[in-house]
Write a protein that binds this DNA or RNA. Sequence first.
DNA 1: CTCCATGCAAATTATTTGCATAGAC
DNA 2: GTCTATGCAAATAATTTGCATGGAG
Lengths: 167, 167
Amino acid sequence: MHKQKQQVMVEVRKLFTDFLENKGQRKTGERFMILEKLYERNDHIDAEALYNLINKQQHNVSRATVYNTLELLVESGLVMRHQFGQHYAEYEKAYGYRQHDHIICTECKKVVEFCDPRIQQIKTKMGELLEFNITRHELHLYGLCADCEKSKKESVAENVKEKVTAV
Amino acid sequence: MHKQKQQVMVEVRKLFTDFLENKGQRKTGERFMILEKLYERNDHIDAEALYNLINKQQHNVSRATVYNTLELLVESGLVMRHQFGQHYAEYEKAYGYRQHDHIICTECKKVVEFCDPRIQQIKTKMGELLEFNITRHELHLYGLCADCEKSKKESVAENVKEKVTAV
DNA sequence: CTCCATGCAAATTATTTGCATAGAC
DNA sequence: GTCTATGCAAATAATTTGCATGGAG
């Protein structure tokens, strides 16, 4: 299991190297450091947290470089950017990591991942129909999780009680 | 057709009125003005453009009010916020306007709307499975439109030619 | 040795906030 | 008359940019 992760890292470094060469971009240590940090984890992280993670631990990479590199990584397809809200973008490894989508609780902001094959059918169909060469997608379902749904019901009941008491 | 639009406007004003009353919020002219501007159009618009639209035309509504009202409208469900990228959020009427999703060209930023019933199946299924009460969704497909796909191919051909010439 | 990528801090953009006042209720 | 929503400008947050320098090619 651990070995598999090592293997992925090797492949990914190779892919990023090729990508940078093709673009005539330099292969700097900072860039590979950021790539690695993203591939070490199995969840999303935002730019600022990534910056802190790198700098508090050991190295010294500027915010500008973090943003610049994230852009490159997204362009290379090795990293996904998820824009959950206006001030809430997160990044996550994409290679060797099953394609998945997200359900977001609008109340507690909890994010749960899921996967449904029907999305692939939509992509294929719509790409054909509208003549787009579709490379990726983002699907977000919004609603209330079981907990927040329960709290809401209780709070409504509470309100009703208050009104009754008030009258 | 035009009459239908008038009819929608009446219904929507009524719904927004009820919403504001329920929240104990005031029914100000600015709020209804913004609601109307959004319902007059059949496409998306961003906060700044909406602000300009209102102020250049006739009235005088501050940015703060525009943002505040957009928030309320989204909360009421009468307006949808689409977050296409990190600096690219747009708003659009939601009531009496068929639910639809978007294909975005990553090159020229063109947005095409589409509708696929399979998305409803995913929502129902995943809501059940993960115990979420799903109220809405956002599906974005990203790729190259036919035009940009063509340009890309030509540009690649061009590059090859250059390299050959250079050697 | 050349020139791009980096670090840093200042700049920018979109959005939010604080405060005084107008106006909805 | 009361108190909230507004306008305005200043504040904030996330991201980008300009410039001098280090280091990849």
